[in-house]
Design a protein around this nucleic acid. Structure first.
Length: 425
RNA sequence: GUGGCUGUAGCUCAGCGGUAGAGCACUGGAUUGUGGCUCCAGUGGCCGUGGGUUCAAAUCCCAUCAGCCACCCCA
């Protein structure tokens, strides 16, 4: 039996990690600019945290968790999403007491869900996201959406769709739910199998059904957005005004529910429509009851999670390219044993100045060394042979334009280094 | 979890009962002090895995593993 990676996982090889590293540093820079602090929580938690935090009725908890018993018979679960663990850490570390005002946290971390593998959907995937605690006003909702809009725009992704909804509060939602169920129940025999199930589990999901009969029945059904309490409605209107004022395009989607049970008021999602179900690259919302539900003080919260794999998929799909930092500055071509022995004198010096250098380790001819330098995309070749050693000179060739220049071989290599820098880009 | 399609060289794929192939990539040479272009040669395969049918299976059948697509749902 050949060894294979587990289902739904992937390897990142160097040509891919360069892009990942570049994107990760942009994520980091974004969160820094908005003054978020990074938080790292365990990859696994006690199962109960997710069961209580994410919600027993959610698909994530009911059928997608990687759960196992450790040697002490404790039930542990590989985290399926970021929020629950961060909330737990926020409470456990008393972060509310350590910072004035709202506490802003971000993460970049692997998540695990036992799902059928598909393109853009993995059993281990990476999400970057944030959680903000202690602010119940719409200003922070707005800042998060402005941040995301700015970030994706800076990556050249302008064809994204921001969908927005308010799912109200635990005070007004049950009343609405009853109205919806009461409206639909007389038609239950006409509903498709899925919707009959949804009617029991999560009635609002019925709005997403593609079945024509179901759509017809639901067309006249009461909408949550028309049954919000005053507080939720005001919050939602303020947020919309802010988005309009700063020119962030969005569309109201009264059917946007999101799969996790903890959301209140603001819910949002960003997607790239041509990719269908895999086009959702970010989802989030407000969860004002979650902290207290997990044993902390009454604290409002809001956050989002965004998929790295989906981001890369959409960048590829739309032909966007991102500058990566893996370019090779210089390839040292060595000729002969004396040059070989001398090579480290130069390489140590250049590398100490963070100049990315490579050389041959396989005994290639000079011609082959040049070919290798070219294939590796080196900007320069530095030649080192008996002639250079005897004359105390170094010959630098620019592989982009083919020009060549000679430098004095001084101990600090300053001339050479400035040539490499100046000819750069 | 449900339904469909596909697994042949590192990659993209042809071959579809009768001696495993091409392009690209990789290695060497033409070219032992100068890359890209060109030419020549070479390395590389349990034809996903296991079983069955057959004189003979990469090819047909079954199972299994994995990938892709749709659904469910999500990042």
């Amino acid at each position: 039996m050949k060894l294979q990676r587990p289902i739904g996982t992937y390897d990142l090889i160097p040509e891919e990690t360069a892009l990942w590293a570049a994107l990760e540093s942009r994520v980091r820079a974004m969160f820094h600019a908005y003054h978020y602090g990074e938080i790292r929580t365990p990859i696994f938690e006690y199962t109960e945290l997710f069961a209580r935090g994410v919600g027993e009725s959610s698909d994530i908890v009911s059928k997608e968790m990687y759960t196992f018993l450790d040697r002490g018979e404790r039930s542990l679960t590989l985290r399926p999403e970021g929020t629950a663990g961060v909330v737990r850490a926020y409470i456990e570390n008393g972060l509310a007491q350590k910072t004035p005002g709202a506490v802003k946290l971000w993460y970049f971390a692997p998540m695990f869900r036992y799902e059928r593998k598909q393109k853009g959907r993995y059993r281990q995937h990476v999400q970057y996201g944030c959680e903000v605690f202690g602010s119940d006003g719409p200003d922070i909702d707005l800042e998060i959406l402005l941040m995301l809009h700015q970030f994706y725009t800076s990556l050249g992704l302008t064809e994204l769709n921001l969908k927005l909804n308010s799912v109200g509060t635990p005070e007004c939602r049950p009343a609405y739910r009853e109205k919806l169920v009461a409206y639909v129940t007389p038609f239950v025999d006409e509903l498709c199998e899925d919707c009959r199930r949804r009617l029991e589990v999560n009635p609002m999901r019925m709005f997403d059904c593609k079945n024509e009969t179901c759509q017809r029945i639901l067309h006249e059904a009461p909408k949550l957005i028309d049954h919000l309490d005053d507080d939720s409605r005001g919050h939602f209107e303020r947020l919309r005004e802010g988005l309009d004022e700063y020119g962030v395009p969005y569309q109201i989607d009264p059917h946007l529910v999101r799969g996790l049970d903890y959301y209140t008021k603001t819910a949002f999602e960003m997607s790239y429509a041509p990719l269908g179900s895999q086009g959702v690259l970010m989802g989030g919302g407000r969860y004002d009851g979650l902290v207290s539900q997990l044993g902390g003080p009454e604290t409002p919260g809001i956050g989002f999670g965004a998929g790295m794999e989906r981001l890369i998929l959409i960048l590829n799909e739309t032909g966007k390219t991102i500058q990566t930092g893996d370019a090779l500055d210089l390839f040292l071509v060595c000729m002969g044993d004396r040059a070989n022995r001398k090579s480290n004198e130069i390489l140590l010096n250049l590398r100490a100045d963070k100049i990315c250098c490579e050389r041959d380790f396989t005994g290639k001819s000079m011609r082959k060394q040049f070919q290798a330098a070219d294939k590796l995309g080196a900007r320069f070749v530095l030649m080192l042979g008996d002639d250079e050693i005897d004359r105390k000179k170094l010959v630098l060739k620019n592989l982009k334009d083919g020009t060549q220049a000679e430098f004095d071989w001084t101990p600090d290599l300053s001339q050479l280094k400035s040539a490499i820098r100046d000819n750069g880009v």
